[in-house]
Structure formats: structure tokens, C-alpha cells
Write a protein that binds this DNA or RNA. Structure first.
Lengths: 199, 199
DNA sequence: TCTATAATACCGACCGGTCGGTATGTATTC
DNA sequence: GAATACATACCGACCGGTCGGTATTATAGA
């Protein structure tokens, strides 16, 4: 009854978790493989049994992050009320993202940093952005055609929405306790919609 | 006629430039002091004559960046038309910032990364944000009192404006050639103002 | 003005330590 | 008894920082 596989998978995930924590706290270069192993309660042998290099673990974590982004985006697509309502309902999702990201900001910065250096990784990072932009773009297009929104330029507006989301997210991560971020997000989106909706 | 001082300052600035380039391309940890020296055409002796550590050069560059931010903010304060006009005129400044930052994104990420790790540095990074937020807050307050703007919450609105600026900046840095960013900024601000202004 | 001396600016070999990765051994499971 | 899952010991490269020394320039006294 595959006892080995079970054990193997557990150590693997323990290594991943330990690596994530350490990367977040000490950064990629500041994190030693030995430290990861110590935190995971195993030794280097286990580490290099599961991963080919330190970079390898990092990329695994990176891919998992991208996957989570995809899932978030999928959630966004589920909605199907009027476009403005849809956009407003996004704020709760933003809050979710913020909480999930809390305390993990540094590792995302690490992702970004590496992405800027390696063109391939960079592309992997950018593509979700394109997807989000396209999603927003579609929503705006729909909003315009259904008559609830002004006749704005869909792509530009999509970038604007993305900017607001990104900008508020960063501020929220930078100083989590400084404001009621869900409320700020809510009000911000409301203001934005006031500029986008027909009256 | 202070020939020594002149030479000294030149090597120092050469070291700073070399360090900045290397940090941007290879990151802080990926950059060796020896490499910086090689790029600057001097040796370690010169380096440690001018700086106490690798961290020291980094912090010097960081402080220079913050200074530049201050200067940008000072430019913002010069304006004195009506608040909405003032906000619109900011877009040209955004463009300036974008161009100045172009190709330097990685080192700013490096700044952020370190800032998240060291509370003191973090504070240095955050404080300009507070200043910008306060500046925008004042502007909104003025706009409300002069009757050109709706009665929105100044702080929240300030955060929103900051978010737009930050979000668009990041997108612009991530894919500089992907759009006419000055135009996008212009239109975005216009939409935002439509949501903020009384009609 | 010439010189002695101090100060500055810089050189470059070297060290202590760290860290990613490997090679080999061992225990447990299939 | 073969394969899997991990442990242990170790290597070699690299890197930040040091330190004794040198060359050049500034300074002060005669």
C-alpha cells in the first residue's frame, strides 16, 4: 500500500514549505540549502533526491504561484451580473488575494526580480497580466455594448483597472495595518465606476 | 589646486555607476565587489577606501534614489491651477518618471526587496509614499472645498490616485513598448477625474 | 623655493568562511 | 534482492573583507 510514496510526498512538501518560508524571509541568495533542510527536518540527501538544484525548488514555487493566479482569474470569470456589479464584486476577491499574500510579499518580489533577469521566466510572469488585461478588456467591451458603461477605450480601461488593483495590492502589502483595505478597495472601485458608467 | 580630491571624486562616482549597473543586471548578491572594481577600472583597495562595505554602496544608491523622488514631488507642488487640472498635468511628470526609470527597474526591485527585510530601510522607503499620499490628500481636500470635486474621502482617494500612478508605472516598466503609456496615463486620469469631479 | 614629512589615494595578494553540489553508504519498502 | 528514500561526509569554487605596501599630492618649515 505505497507507504514509500506517501512518505516521499510528505518530505517533498515539507521541503517546499520550508523553502518558501526561508525564501520569503531571507531571499533566494540568503537562503542556504542546508537551512532549508534543517527547517524541513531532513538532510541534503533528501533535498537533492527531490530537486535537482536550489533553482529547481524556486521555480516549482514560482509555478505554483502562477497556478494560484490562474485559479483567482477563473473565479473572476464565474460572475455574470452586469459589468459594473461584476467589477464591484471583485473587491472581495482582492481582499482574498491580499490576505493570501500577506507576509509573503518578499518572495513575490523575489519572483519579480528573477523574472526581470531571465527572459523566459519574465514571459511566464507577464502572461497572466495579459490574461487579466484581456479579461478586463472583455468586461469593458461587454459593459459598453450592454449600455451600462461609457464608450471608453477597452484596452486602456483594462490597464487602468489592473493598475488600481495592482497599486492597492502593493500598498496593502506594504502597510497592512495602515488602513481598512477592503473598504478602500470598495470605495476606490466605486469612484472608478462613477467615471466609467453612463448616468 | 586639489588635484587629489578631483581624482578621488571621479573614481568614487565611477564605482557608484559601475555598482548601479551591476546591481541592476546581476542583483546585489550576484554582484561581486571584484566585478564592480573591474568595471570601474580600479581595484578593491580603491573600493574599500571609498566605501566601508558592499552594503554601503548599495545604501548610497538607495539614498540617491529617494532624493530623486523628493525632487519629483517638489515639482508636483509647483502647480497651482484648479485641482483637476493639476492632476491632469501630473501625467507628463509620470512620463518623465517612466523614462528615467526605464531599464533600472531591477535595481528598484532590489531596493524593495531589501526594504522589506530591514525595518529601518523599510521606513525610509515608505515615508516618501506617505508624503505623496499626504500631498494627494491635500489636493483632494482643496478640490472638495473649492467645489470642483465631489465630497469623497480624501485619504482613500489619495490612495487611489497613488495606486493608479504606481500600477501604471509598473505596467509601463514591465512592457515599455507595449502601449503608448503617456496616452494611457492621460486617459486613465481623465476617467478617474470623471468619477471625482462634480458635474 | 626647496625639502622633509605627512596625508591621501590606491594596489593586489591573501584569508576565513560559506555554500551549492556530489559521492557513497544505509535502511526501509516493494 | 532490487529499487526507493534518505543520511553523512566532503569538495572545490567563490566572495567579502583585510592588510601591508606604494605612488602621488598636499603641507609646513628652513
Amino acid at each position: 500500500m505505497d507507504k514509500q510514496r506517501q512518505r516521499s510526498e510528505e518530505t517533498r512538501s515539507r521541503l517546499l514549505e520550508a523553502a518558501e518560508r526561508s525564501f520569503a524571509q531571507q531571499g533566494f541568495d540568503g537562503t542556504g540549502v542546508a537551512k532549508i533542510c534543517q527547517a524541513a527536518g531532513v538532510t541534503k540527501g533528501a533535498f537533492y533526491h527531490h530537486f535537482s538544484s536550489k533553482e529547481d525548488v524556486f521555480m516549482e514555487l514560482f509555478r505554483r504561484w502562477l497556478e494560484r493566479l490562474e485559479i483567482q482569474m477563473a473565479k473572476l470569470r464565474e460572475n455574470s451580473a452586469s459589468v459594473p456589479e461584476e467589477l464591484l464584486s471583485m473587491t472581495s476577491l482582492m481582499q482574498e488575494v491580499l490576505q493570501a499574500t500577506e507576509g509573503q510579499f518578499p518572495i513575490y518580489l523575489e519572483f519579480w526580480t528573477r523574472a526581470m533577469r531571465d527572459p523566459a521566466i519574465r514571459q511566464e510572469l507577464i502572461s497572466p497580466f495579459y490574461r487579466y488585461r484581456d479579461l478586463f478588456s472583455e468586461m469593458v467591451l461587454k459593459g459598453v455594448s450592454e449600455g451600462t458603461m461609457k464608450e471608453v477605450h477597452p484596452e486602456t480601461t483594462a490597464r487602468l483597472i489592473l493598475a488600481v488593483a495592482l497599486g492597492l495590492l502593493i500598498q496593502g502589502l506594504l502597510e497592512p495595518q495602515e488602513a481598512e483595505w477592503d473598504q478602500v478597495t470598495q470605495e476606490s472601485m466605486q469612484i472608478l465606476l462613477d467615471g466609467l458608467m453612463k448616468r
